[in-house]
């Protein structure tokens, strides 16, 4: 057995990708590399202090897939929008083309990279028990890696002549085994049990907003407005993460409903703040149409609780604290259930 295992230590690196792992927020700190072993693929996920491995044996692979994603097109659109928007703004204000020029250079570099590496894509390898996303982000490298995997797998399993699927295998056993749909993010049975980490962060975000609002209320100053704005943004990000995870987990129950309620409250808070902002601008015509002056004046008014904004900060504080408590309790109950499910698995 020792010889058998040492034989497998010769790996060839195939590809690597950042932004992997559970959620992009944490994925920023981790990187997955794909290696080719003697009889298997090795996924090595490095998260700074720990390296985790998953092995997929060629004899177990049922299917490989590749799909073009719209990320590169979206990025193109955003970059062009920024270049044009900033360029028009700079042209109208008769200032040098500084920002738009910088974005134009970024856009050209991105076009060159895009031209060289191909479109963005998502690849998966599927076995009987798991479906793993391959750490490949571009079509050209995907083609090389997938061809290699296909060759090795076909060496072990043989090939299915004419069995390129379209909704199901086209062989004589077509009716015997329907192919279940591939779900992105589904890795193995244990990974499918979502432990509620995003919802924990979301509860923390709400509490942070409540505390920073309380500090603004008590100190009547601008200093704590920035943590308040930061926590407000964080709640948005954590809500998106939580929704993504609970959609994957499918059975989150009350916690899932509370996340949606939280998003509603969050949007409501944003609308109320905006209404207060408009009201403040209308009540103070001397500020004029200068957006920078308007914001600073509004923040000063909110910080000191003047200009009809005395109920705004306590309102934010109360609703945030309530949401924080509700999500925390639901998260705690869900987590207990998830730990039990995980132990059962």
């Amino acid at each position: 057995m020792g010889d058998m295992m040492t034989d497998q230590q010769h790996y060839t690196k195939l590809n690597s990708a950042y932004l992997s792992g559970p959620g992009c927020l944490f994925g920023l700190l981790s990187r997955t590399r794909l290696f080719l072993g003697k009889d298997h693929l090795l996924f090595a996920t490095n998260s700074i202090i720990k390296e985790e491995y998953r092995r997929v044996y060629f004899r177990d692979i049922q299917m490989i897939s590749m799909q073009v994603t719209g990320f590169s097109r979206l990025l193109h659109f955003i970059l062009i929008f920024l270049v044009l928007g900033l360029g028009i703004r700079e042209f109208v204000n008769d200032v040098p083309f500084g920002f738009s020029g910088a974005f134009l250079i970024v856009t050209i570099i991105y076009w060159l990279v895009h031209w060289g590496r191909g479109e963005t894509c998502a690849c998966e390898v599927r076995t009987r028990v798991q479906s793993l996303p391959l750490p490949i982000g571009r079509l050209k490298s995907a083609k090389i890696v997938l061809d290699l995997i296909r060759e090795r797998t076909s060496e072990v399993q043989g090939s299915l002549e004419g069995q390129i699927m379209r909704g199901g295998p086209a062989g004589p056993d077509k009716k015997s085994e329907p192919i279940p749909p591939i779900r992105r993010g589904m890795q193995n049975s244990k990974d499918m049990i979502y432990m509620g980490h995003s919802h924990g962060l979301l509860a923390g975000g709400w509490f942070f907003l409540a505390i920073s609002s309380a500090l603004v209320f008590l100190n009547e100053g601008l200093m704590f407005l920035y943590p308040m704005l930061l926590s407000f943004s964080c709640i948005g990000i954590f809500s998106i993460l939580s929704i993504a995870n609970q959609r994957r987990a499918e059975a989150v129950g009350v916690l899932g409903s509370l996340t949606w309620v939280g998003i509603f409250i969050w949007a409501l808070q944003a609308i109320v703040v905006y209404i207060y902002f408009i009201r403040h601008a209308l009540m103070n015509p001397e500020i004029g149409m200068n957006p920078a002056k308007s914001y600073i004046s509004f923040f000063e008014a909110v910080g000191s609780g003047q200009g009809g904004t005395e109920y705004l900060v306590p309102g934010l504080m109360g609703t945030s604290a309530a949401m924080g408590v509700l999500i925390l309790v639901a998260w705690f109950l869900y987590r207990q259930r998830a730990v039990k499910m995980s132990e059962d698995v």
Binding site: I61, Q62, S65, M66, L146, S154, S159, P169, E177
Partner: peptide, 9 residues
């Protein structure tokens, strides 16, 4: 693109 192997059947 999807490539199916005999393992599927």
């Amino acid at each position: 693109w999807i490539h199916v192997f005999p393992g599927m059947l």
